[in-house]
Design a protein around this nucleic acid. Structure first.
Lengths: 353, 353
DNA sequence: TTGTACGCGTTATCAC
DNA sequence: GTGATAACGCGTACAA
């Protein structure tokens, strides 16, 4: 592949001049400028970014760490990240960790070796030591859609406690008292927060949250399906389920169907995230909406800011941005059925089918 | 950040020896080996991949170019690509082009400058000149889920013509004769092929394909919705729609619902792709299944092969892999309704609701 | 305005 | 087995 020296020789100038033209710096005669650009185009020269990065100490590449891009929650976040970063000339390396700590650690090591300019963590699980490792190496990072215990900066999240509180209260106001919680992995922060919101809301209604059934699952559709089978057995008295994310809620709906349980007549279901398919008329999942694209976009801007600040003054931390979740009331919570749950036919779209 | 020289000095050896230990090459005494590794771990040294790549001429990074990761068709492909490449120590740079030629060209330039070891194209549109540009620069590439006119190598695809043929024939066998085609962008190869399959099947039944309505849309849900509104106006006599991809088919279903058209009783719908939500019991979209994950995985392996071959002998091309699509018959085509279309109530799941 | 020469952090080719 | 040292391709003081 051609080098800057080839261009310099061909154009009859020095490599320094070629470099100046390519990065349009300072003083270069329009004459020589033309000459250089002409040979560059004629020969199809492409600068070697590796050499450039080695010299400038910036790569124009960022890492994006998520759990699994096939989870419908993540593509929009990734898109928000990508759009913003790409507008500033950055590329994004995508990393699927499946929530495995080892996979994540391995990715981080690779990203550090590739000297990415920054990393966005949207995966559910991250070791705090990994982050201090990055700090030690001077690589800025940002958390998107999640927090970490003991860290209340450099992250953009929705208020999960509030969202879960609203969702649960919605069910309570509809008259439900026997409400189950389909949980994500217990130790994951977003799940802990949503569980906390669930607890606050139920105890606000004088219920003992510890008496309400909670089943741990994995944030995936199949996990939600399995959890629902366990919760909705023959002797179940549950009339509603709050599910920690939409993907599991979809699994719950599938399970309810297979168990011949009518939603929302016999069972109200509320999810979290508002993934695209939740709004389809055949699904109409009541859920807590997160601004996914915005979470990604804001996180990206925050990261860019942080990089700027590292390069100027020494300040390395950003504020914490908390976005507000919004309860999207749709069919599956049976809001139109209240106050007598499960007694009268639903008057919602599709009900007459 | 620490350099190999720091380690060499601290361990009392030369940089060459440190390098040998790190890449466990040749002859190094167990003694010195231990000593080097100890200081590496103690000081937390991370090799600079840029410098390494500059020297070795490989980056361990690949580019993946797609249209839009929020289109449910792509996450599984991306996952297949990522899983395989990551197993071989590669990272993946994700590029969303939205089908814009300029965006794609800009991405390719960036990827070339970063000296990625290879590129996978899963986007719908690619300029042939871009590819020859890559060839000129010695960067291997592979096409995934699509072809390019005049190129029948280095790609993995399903037989789109066959898939579309089967889908259309399915509708014809159910008795439909007035079938519309909701098209993707006309110039996109996969769409052209599916249209071709549609034409072959209809003319096989003595129909004049040119008399059947075809509306061009954009492969997105909103586009499918809009196309359906145009096709299903008051004076429409269509009893079935073959839709070029599932995402648009979802839009068609939404439109049908808003127009109070019953699916499948009044309108049969068949899509293409078999995205995850097509299988949900509330959707049950009849569609042509593509093995998306496999397409990504096979493309990744093909790219790895191609890279290997470039490094050994000079052969730079791979074969063309054609995977077989599979018609997934579900509710929306009303297979259980035949032969009298639209006369009797459906006896499909959910019908008694 | 332009050119020379060194540094960026590795790997690889020599000697020893 | 180990150590100098020249690439790798670019940016950039410094000098001219």
């Amino acid at each position: 592949m051609l080098t800057i020296r080839d261009i310099a020789r061909e154009a009859g100038v020095s490599t320094a001049t070629v470099s100046r033209v390519l990065n349009d710096l300072q003083s270069v005669t329009e004459e020589t400028r033309r000459k250089v650009l002409e040979t560059v185009n004629r020969l199809g020269y492409r600068p070697n970014g590796l050499a450039r990065s080695l010299s400038t100490k910036r790569t124009g590449t960022m890492g994006l760490i998520i759990s699994d891009i096939t989870n419908p929650f993540f593509p929009e976040i990734a898109r928000g990240v990508e759009d913003v970063l790409n507008a500033y000339g950055y590329n994004v390396i995508l990393c699927n960790t499946d929530g495995h700590a080892e996979k994540e650690a391995a990715y981080i090591r690779l990203l550090v070796e590739k000297r990415v300019d920054g990393i966005i963590f949207a995966s559910v699980r991250t070791d705090k030591s990994d982050l201090s490792d990055l700090d030690a190496n001077g690589i800025p990072w940002v958390l998107a859609g999640r927090t970490l215990p003991g860290i209340d900066r450099d992250c953009v999240v929705v208020d999960n406690i509030l969202g879960a509180y609203q969702a649960t209260q919605h069910l309570l106001q509809l008259g439900h008292r026997r409400i189950g919680y389909v949980s994500g992995p217990f130790h994951v922060s977003v799940n802990m927060e949503r569980l906390e919101g669930f607890r606050q809301a139920t105890s606000g209604y004088g219920l003992n949250a510890s008496e309400l059934p909670i089943v741990e699952a994995d944030f995936k559709q199949a996990g939600g399906y399995a959890a629902a089978l366990r919760l909705l057995g023959p002797q179940s008295d549950l009339t509603a389920l709050f599910v920690a994310n939409d993907l599991m809620a979809i699994g719950v709906l599938e399970a309810a169907h297979d168990l011949a349980i009518q939603v929302p007549e016999d069972l109200a279901v509320v999810g979290f995230d508002d993934i695209p398919l939740a709004a389809l008329h055949t699904i109409q999942l009541t859920t807590v909406a997160q601004p996914k694209y915005e979470i990604g976009a804001v996180a990206a801007r925050m990261l860019l800011d942080k990089i700027d600040r590292v390069n100027t003054d020494g300040d390395r931390s950003s504020a914490k941005v908390i976005l507000t979740p919004k309860l999207q009331v749709r069919r599956t919570s049976g809001a139109d059925l209240s106050p007598q749950i499960g007694r009268q036919p639903a008057t919602v779209p599709d009900a007459e089918k």
